[in-house]
Nucleic acid binder design. Sequence first.
DNA 1: CTGCCTCAGACATCCGATCAATGGCTAGGA
DNA 2: TCCTAGCCATTGATCGGATGTCTGAGGCAG
Lengths: 225, 225
Amino acid sequence: MAVTDEAIEKIKAMIVAGELAPGDRLPPEKELAERLGLSRNSMREAVKALEVIRVLDVRRGDGTYVTSLEPHLLLEAISFVVDMHDDDSMLEIFVVRRMLESQATGLAANLATDDEVAALVAEVNSIDGSVSVEELVEHDIRFHREIARMTGNAYLASLIEHLSSQTVRARVWRGLTEGGAVERTLSEHRAIADAVVQHDSALATSLATAHIAGVERWLRQAASA
Amino acid sequence: MAVTDEAIEKIKAMIVAGELAPGDRLPPEKELAERLGLSRNSMREAVKALEVIRVLDVRRGDGTYVTSLEPHLLLEAISFVVDMHDDDSMLEIFVVRRMLESQATGLAANLATDDEVAALVAEVNSIDGSVSVEELVEHDIRFHREIARMTGNAYLASLIEHLSSQTVRARVWRGLTEGGAVERTLSEHRAIADAVVQHDSALATSLATAHIAGVERWLRQAASA
DNA sequence: CTGCCTCAGACATCCGATCAATGGCTAGGA
DNA sequence: TCCTAGCCATTGATCGGATGTCTGAGGCAG
């Protein structure tokens, strides 16, 4: 194994062992390099790798710190992965998303507080079919994020959010506006919100399944066209 | 943004744009560094970062290549993330795993071929409660992997597999052997396998849900103890 | 006393150069 | 034809140094 990979493992081990806690500061580059037994440059490669997957946070002129290690940070890397996939993989991803999001929506219907319900309704009412694609994408992200957050499961919420990354959403919505399906999609959002308001878990689950499956079907025929 | 991050984005963009296809070879480090407008050292940091998330494959003395970009490769990074979490996050992860694995098992019951069914039965019959923890972990991994693979969804299968990484599994199983719950867990495996053999999707889904939830409950009380 | 400025020190950032290790390829011989 | 030795391209690792940036201490003006 290369020295850099060893260094990555060692730093990871220090975190897993609790030797380095979230927010802790690592020794200066020079010292850390000595401690791990390699050159500064090689150690920097290791630190950089841990930085892109959001395990470390390097602040220039200050020092290197362990991030909060919260799910939403660590799962950011998934967006990167999702972006890189072609249409075939995208369909597989949508199946996963449908599995997660349908159940998450059902869970949200059970757990939603009054405040959360009000926020969701406000979000749905804030939009109609006349806005730009960018605004639709933003709305879509907020809508699904709010539902996912209601589950109280940060890991689940992050996974759902990053599973349909920004660029994928943009592509899909652009297609939907061309196909004239915007209004139907928005009305599905409204129906899901209604089910959550009524705390009707079974209905919310089914509507969410149908909602994702609809987009999925559109993507499937777009991919084959 | 740091030059390294720019380089990462540029390389990613080249891949997304199709300019670099899976299996393609990148220019030599020196040339690539010039092309991206930075030093070889900094470029190596970027390449290293892309290597740990399995986007690039660097072969010493040969060259740097784009990997196959298959889901199982790209999702390996998740194991890394999962390993790093504490017990609280672990519970959230188990909820996600339950959502995915239950539905995947139902799907598998529908789609399983005769060969796959035979392999699953063989796996279940190959083990009893008298073997070591390591062997139990290996069996557990193989059992759940085979079911996940039957869905034909590589992304789903990889996600499930990495969501309960090696080290997490080991920890849980060690606890289970102490608690004397091995035989019960194995019998649950047998029941799930039976449902798949019968192509009884609904039963398979429920059994898988119960199976994961059982481990989940054990983990919950272990965490609070 | 308060607010602002400057300056020094600590630290990360980036670079260019150098040598080691490795893999692939090819020429030459059996 | 097959095998091997050796060359060359390429990555692996390190060093030393110049530079940008942040933080905090201390001084100065209001």
